Simulated assay, not measured.
Amino acid sequence: MAAKTNAGWFFEDYSIGQVIHHGVPRTLSGGERAMYHALYPARHAIYSSDAFARNCGLAEAPLDDLIAFHTVFGKTVPDISLNAVANLGYAEGRFLKPVHAGDTLVSRSEVVGLKQNSNGKTGVVWVRTTGENQLGDVVLEYVRWVMVRKRDVDAPAPKTVMPDLAAALNPDHLVIPEGLDFSGYNYGQSGEPHRLGDYEIGERIDHVDGVTIEEAEHMLATRMWQNTAKVHFDATAREDGRRLIYGGHIISMARALSFNGLANAAMIVGLNAGAHANPCFSGDTVKAWSEVLDIAQTVAPGVGAIRLRLVAQRVGAETFSLKGEDGKYLPDVLLDLDYWALMPV
């Protein structure tokens, strides 16, 4: 009898130019927003209030940008990272259109890079993933690369192809949501008075608060995004018998913690780079800090752009620490994320 179950893709299953259409379409609702705000201390006003969003030129409050990211990402897991050893990085991510309750999202990925590792047991796969809504509008695109196991260690290595990826998005390539206007931005309601001119390149911000990661919450979040990676649920999938916390859970936690000091970094529009520097496990207490990398103007009224490095680390590590003298991430650094956000000028 032919097997009907899916054991996932292995390194030798991928080829350059291959396009993978991922199942299953997902219609989002206000339920995802409520659950997201229950899981994370998310308080950015433009995602919390229709009235606030209308004052900013939008028809209603869109869903949090990372809801769109996790939904699009989760669709790719059965085909891209079910047999992954590690999710290594992100680049060239652009949020192209706000996602609203009632939108249905689908994902597809194109293989843009392959490189077998020297051990012959694993290889790195680069994919460019695109998320579309029910109208065929692209809402999100990004490149990520993962280390994937080989099914057969004797399978021949493919020709090495490594994509040429931009170190950061040019601010001119950021897409501003249609109608967005921060000229009448309500700082009293947003939670903080700080605007773009209050920040300086090189400035570092300690976001102060911490959250202890719980096993049940991270598994609930990962299931919500329909992420099926074994290492997040099955304690036998790792030699140490521990469930690995989904990296997206740490991204959302750090972004939510960054509200304290960056409340008006209102919308994420670009993802320049990202690394899950070290694994996170239940019981770890996570804190976050940010560094201002760049500042830019946009053509939208009252809207500027701020480029931020967001770092999540375990409590106990020295604040603003990142890498050692050897250039490697320090062991308590969990996330290093470089992104563009929109902020009132």
Score class of each variant (00 low, 15 high):
303 V>H: 04
301 P>H: 08
50 D>I: 13
70 H>P: 00
143 V>T: 15
142 Y>N: 07
183 S>H: 09
24 V>A: 14
66 L>W: 14
286 V>D: 02
156 P>F: 03
158 P>R: 07
224 M>Y: 00
276 H>Y: 11
2 A>W: 08
312 A>G: 14
310 L>A: 04
321 S>Y: 10
332 D>G: 01
28 L>W: 08
42 A>D: 14
99 V>I: 11
149 R>E: 11
215 E>G: 02
25 P>Q: 09
33 R>S: 14
192 E>S: 15
152 D>L: 06
332 D>W: 06
81 S>T: 14
68 A>L: 11
141 E>W: 03
42 A>M: 12
282 S>Q: 07
11 F>E: 07
66 L>H: 13
60 E>H: 12
282 S>R: 06
28 L>F: 10
218 H>F: 12
147 M>D: 00
24 V>C: 03
150 K>N: 10
91 A>T: 07
107 S>D: 08
79 D>F: 12
201 I>N: 01
328 K>C: 10
261 G>H: 02
21 H>N: 12
113 G>S: 08
80 I>W: 00
42 A>F: 14
113 G>P: 03
277 A>N: 02
127 V>H: 01
78 P>F: 10
227 N>H: 01
161 V>D: 02
278 N>I: 06
185 Y>P: 05
162 M>D: 04
45 A>N: 00
178 E>R: 15
110 E>I: 08
188 G>E: 13
72 V>K: 06
132 E>Y: 14
290 S>E: 05
342 L>K: 05
87 N>C: 02
93 G>F: 11
115 K>E: 15
225 W>C: 12
63 L>Q: 09
306 I>Q: 05
84 A>E: 07
344 P>E: 03
119 N>M: 02
231 V>H: 01
232 H>R: 02
335 L>R: 03
328 K>F: 08
342 L>C: 04
202 G>R: 06
274 G>R: 01
131 G>F: 10
285 T>C: 07
81 S>H: 02
110 E>P: 02
158 P>E: 05
156 P>H: 06
325 E>I: 11
264 N>W: 04
170 N>M: 03
84 A>S: 14
234 D>N: 13
19 V>D: 04
42 A>V: 06
290 S>L: 08
253 M>E: 04
15 S>L: 05
246 Y>E: 08
129 T>M: 05
110 E>T: 13
150 K>H: 09
294 D>Q: 09
231 V>G: 00
45 A>D: 04
167 A>E: 12
305 A>N: 10
250 I>V: 15
199 Y>F: 15
130 T>P: 00
35 M>T: 14
272 N>W: 03
340 W>R: 01
194 H>Q: 12
162 M>I: 15
283 G>N: 02
